[in-house]
Write a protein that binds this DNA or RNA. Structure first.
Length: 424
RNA sequence: GGAGAGAUGCCAGAGUGGUUGAAUGGGACGGUCUCGAAAACCGUUGUGCGGGUAACUGUACCGAGGGUUCGAAUCCCUCUCUCUCCGCCA
């Protein structure tokens, strides 16, 4: 959520940013917010004045009663009666104004960083880096959804039987590979001074609002009606919400957390072509890294996080490319996002395995996540997060890229974790 | 699931209707003292939204939301959470 003050003081910059996102009707919405907020201020000023008088009167009545001047006290008391109704009405209208402003603010996406290219969709994203040679497979190479059957390591039919489509069952070496990847990613994160966090995989409504899943994106999350809990779509949600309503001391920064969780996504409406096998699931595993930074350090942190994610892909010997997302393809909350895509050689497709973003103050403003400087000043912080990494598509490319006539070779870096070097 | 108790500032903990944003203690920070430290003593120790260049100032906030009252941390209602005991149980 943007700050009203930013919209008020940098209106043109905000409008320009929204244009880059191809955000429709920005001007009207922004003007409406400014108008509603001006009304809010005006109402508050009038209400505060009124309350100041009421407080003074109440004090006076107390003093009069103490001084045994009951007649005067009663006279004053009688004069107040009608004013209360008006005050109550003003309070209601203030509440309404505040709510209207917030509801409008929820509709405005984050302002893109100046380096974000204009564009409408995935085709306009900018490839900023590519690493590794694309494997040349033999003609009889199989896509991963065939390989998992051939070696009996992941079973979609069984998942379908006990849960539904998009909930695979990992078996034998398939299960061990999952566990190996999770441990590998967590160990690597620890080497980079990320603190390991194991959060709940359900969150309450306030947390959904904190990181921006709510309102509007509730359709993407599984919801447990009985208890009002949402199953997390990513560890970003619980780990970032740890810092909701928190004022950190400057010396506590930076915060670097990493956590493994399963992630749950309803993916309503996005089912169709190109989602075979592991390409898109309702439940998948992911290690997420989250950083909380002072504003002047956040872009340096974003670079560090990208470099770290890239180092993981290099250790896994997967060819990848790094994309700078264009305004039209960026997430609602993000100011700047890099996607990492690995190449799945049998499908001959690039698969997104990581998305690394700087949200600047957009989440922090909702979360009320701030820090106090040594001088005692309070400022919003910047939040960042990235996948490091999401498992299924990594598994898909390992399976496809490393298939040989003898079986599937495990990347060297993973063997200490899998304790086998081939799936056959 | 049943019964009871509770929720106050960074922490502990007073406060049952009237200048209480909140006693007291601890912690932290600053100062005096000291070669330095400890001890002792003195001081500081909110957040949001307004107004003001600023000093400062108005208002709200004692789990959340309502209500009673001229006036609520204090009384009433609803909700949430925590603790204790019992039951169940990985």
């Amino acid at each position: 959520m943007l700050q009203v003050a930013v919209i008020r003081e940098q209106t043109n910059k905000v409008l320009e940013g929204l244009r880059k996102r191809n955000f429709k009707d920005a001007e009207n919405l922004i003007n409406l917010i400014l108008k509603k907020d001006a009304l809010r201020k005006e109402t508050q000023k009038a209400l505060d004045d009124r309350k100041a008088k009421a407080n003074a009167d109440a004090k006076k009545i107390g003093e009069l009663i103490k001084a045994q001047k009951n007649d005067e006290a009663n006279a004053l008391r009688a004069s107040i009666g009608e004013a209360k109704e008006t005050t109550k009405a003003m309070e209601a209208s203030l509440n309404e104004s505040e709510k209207e402003v917030i509801d409008l603010l929820y509709k405005i996406p984050n302002i893109p960083h100046e380096s974000v290219p204009a564009g409408f969709g995935a085709d306009d994203n900018l490839k900023v880096y590519e690493h590794g040679l694309l494997p040349q497979l033999s003609l009889d190479a199989l896509p991963h959804w065939e390989l998992i059957k051939k070696y009996d390591i992941i079973d979609f039919d069984l998942g379908n039987k006990i849960a539904g489509a998009g909930f695979p069952v990992y078996k034998g070496k398939g299960a061990k590979l999952q566990r190996a990847l999770i441990n590998f990613f967590l160990d690597e994160a620890e080497k980079q001074n990320y603190k390991e966090i194991q959060p709940p995989i359900v969150v309450n409504e306030a947390s959904g609002y904190g990181t921006g899943q709510l309102p509007d994106k509730e359709g993407q999350m599984y919801f447990i009606q009985e208890d009002g809990l949402y199953m997390i779509p990513t560890a970003e949600v619980p780990i970032t919400n740890l810092y909701r309503d928190v004022i950190l001391n400057e010396e506590d920064l930076p915060v670097k957390n990493a956590g493994y969780t399963p992630c749950f996504r309803r993916e309503a409406g996005s089912w169709g072509a190109h989602v075979r096998g592991l390409n898109r699931l309702h439940q998948f595993d992911k290690v997420e890294i989250v950083q909380i930074r002072k504003p002047d350090e956040s872009y340096q942190a974003l670079d560090e996080m990208c470099a770290y994610v890239q180092s993981l892909l290099e250790k896994l010997e997967l060819p990848y490319r790094k994309l700078l997302l264009c305004g039209g393809d960026m997430g609602f909350n993000s100011a700047l996002t890099f996607d990492m895509e690995v190449y799945a050689a049998a499908q001959q497709r690039w698969l997104e395995v990581s998305s690394v973003s700087n949200f600047e103050t957009f989440q922090a403003n909702r979360l009320k996540l701030r820090y106090k400087t040594k001088e005692g000043k309070i400022h919003l912080l910047h939040t960042l997060n990235g996948s490091a990494l999401a498992l299924p598509r990594i598994v898909a490319s390992i399976l496809e890229n490393n298939q040989t006539s003898d079986g599937i070779k495990i990347p060297k870096a993973l063997i200490p974790y899998t304790k086998f070097d081939i799936i056959n």
